[in-house]
Each structure stands twice: as structure tokens, then as C-alpha cells.
Amino acid sequence: MLEEVNRLSDYAIIRAHDIATRLLPPQVISQLAYAKNLREVVTILHMTEYGEYISREIEPTPEYLHEQIKKVFIKRCLKLLKVSSEELRDILLEVLRIFEIENLLFIFKKKWAGEKADPSKLVILPFSTINYSSLIETKNVEEFIRLLTSYDVYSEFRSEIISLMGKFNSPLPIEYELYRIRYKRLFDVINKQRFLPDKREIEKIFQIEVDIMNIFLALAPMLYDFSPELIDPLLLPSGHKINIKTLKNVVRSKNRSFVMKALRSYKDIVENIIIKREGEAYVIAQRYLRKELLAHRIPSFISPYYVLSLLKRCEYEFRDLSVIVHGIFYNIPHENIARFLISIYN
């Protein structure tokens, strides 16, 4: 067993500690949020790992900076994947599949409108087996789904989802089906690792993610008049604190106090969703997840959990920097930019 653990807690953990030292500290993130313009952002980032990628000679635009930030994120992911054992890599790949799904949704939604997606806008991680160009070239939504389901990863796409999409004329079922597949694969791969240290803790993080996604979904009928018949089949299984039965009751409820009581474990998030401040709710949820990740960081200093937590922190940094560059470019007040950052607190 010890041998198995050692195999998992290999070089990747050491590299994770190395990458962790390069993550931007909260005070730097905060400093970036209060930068006067993109030039100042470039000046600050130049002193960090991002300096290698960002040129001071080029006039900074949000698109250019986003592209460079994306490169650093991809580089970090690849570094971790390269040094991970097979078992750990499987988990990391499923964690990173969220970017593949975001790409697929981008192409799918464009297809839904009869438009062609611009491949330069995709975050393509090299491990992805998806041929995005052929998906972009498909003639319609049906062909897109047919091609997508021909990939092993998405072969368990449920047929009722397609009829649900047709019945409600909504792309939402496809979106949540992709999330369902991602989480199922993720939990399967975690459970497959019999001797994975901190397995419960790793699972918990993703179960909380599922809870949060379900909360946003379950409140849609009450707040935005979504059809409960559409929402019910989309609820994701394997949540942490909220079971499907409770969520189904929430879907059909119009009573705010009942909802607050049923979802009390995520009070702050629910409160913000109810007052239609979903952006804030999303950030609170991500901060909550980050807090959970950091809380277990020290006890898991030499476990694969640390690698996973680092990967998530890299993702938060990527998303935060994207918010900062776009926020500054579009003259969003600094305090508001700071409000939308995940890694701004220790």
C-alpha cells in the first residue's frame, strides 16, 4: 500500500510546491486590481512568472494579456501533468476537462445560433483528444452532438437530453449533460484509486462544486421562471451537503424561506442568488471552494491533494487575472473588480 501511495505522491508534489511559490500572492492580485491602466498591470506582471510571456513593447490590450495569461496557465498545467504518475494524471485530466467543456459549449452555442466559432477563442489544452475544427465545421446542432458522442469521453451522452433540448428549445440540457459527464468521470477516476491519500477530501471539493452548480440550477424556476420539468433531469448527482430530493423540492418551491432553510449550508451564496446578484454568488462560491482547498493544504502537504489544490489555485489565478485585465480595460471601478476576485484573500 505504501508503495502505491509513494507512486502517487511522486515528483508531481515537489513540482506543485515549486509552482505554488510562483503563484501570485493575494496582495499582488489586489495591487493588480487597483492598477490605473493595463500598462501598470504589465509592469507589475513583468516582475512575476508572467514577465516571460508579456512584452513591454506591445501596447497591452485585454485580448493580448488574456492570451499570455492563458499561456502561463497552460504551461503550469502541462508541467504538472508531465511529472504526474498515471493515476494522478487521470484525475488531473478530468479536473482540467472543464476547459474542454467550456470550449465545447462555446462551439455548441455558436452552432445553436447558426454561427461559426472562432477557434482562437478556445482554451485548448494539449491533452484534449477532441478535434475542435471538425466540430466547428459541423452543419448543425444535431451533427455536432452526433460527432461529439462519437468520442469515448462523451459516449454516455443520454438520449433523453437531446429530446429535452428539442422540447424546451434550450441549449441548457446539453450544457448540464456535459457537466454531468465530467463529474461522473471525475468521481469514477477518484474512486478507482484505492490507495489515494486524502481521497475523501479530494472528493469533497468536487462534491461542493456539484452542490453549487445544483443550487444555481434549482433556483432558476423560482427566480427566472424556468420550467421545473426541464431542470429536474439536469440536476447533477453526487453533491456534498444537498441531496437530489431536497433540490427537487427547491425546484418546485416558490417559498423563499423554505429555500433558505433547505439550502442553509450555502446561505451566503443562496442569499445573493435570490437577490439576483449571481456574479457575486459565483465569486462567493469560488472563494468558499478556495477556502476549503486551503484549509486542508497543510495536512496534505505531501499528498496528491496538494497537486489538485494547486491546480485549482492556478485556475483561480487565471480567472482572476482575466477579470482584472477586462475590468481595467472597461473602466470598472477598482473596488468592483476586487469584489469579483477569488484569490484576493489568504
Partner: peptide, 20 residues
């Protein structure tokens, strides 16, 4: 508010959803 959401979700997500 739209600018805030734009910054939060990123241009790609907004672009894709705007097409729907």
C-alpha cells in the same frame, strides 16, 4: 453591471451566449 459580468465571465462566454 454588464461590464462587470463581461469581465467576470470573459468575452468568449458572453459572445457564445449572445448568439443564442
Amino acid at each position: 453591471r454588464f461590464r462587470e459580468i463581461y469581465a467576470l465571465l470573459g468575452p468568449e462566454t458572453i459572445d457564445a451566449n449572445a448568439s443564442i
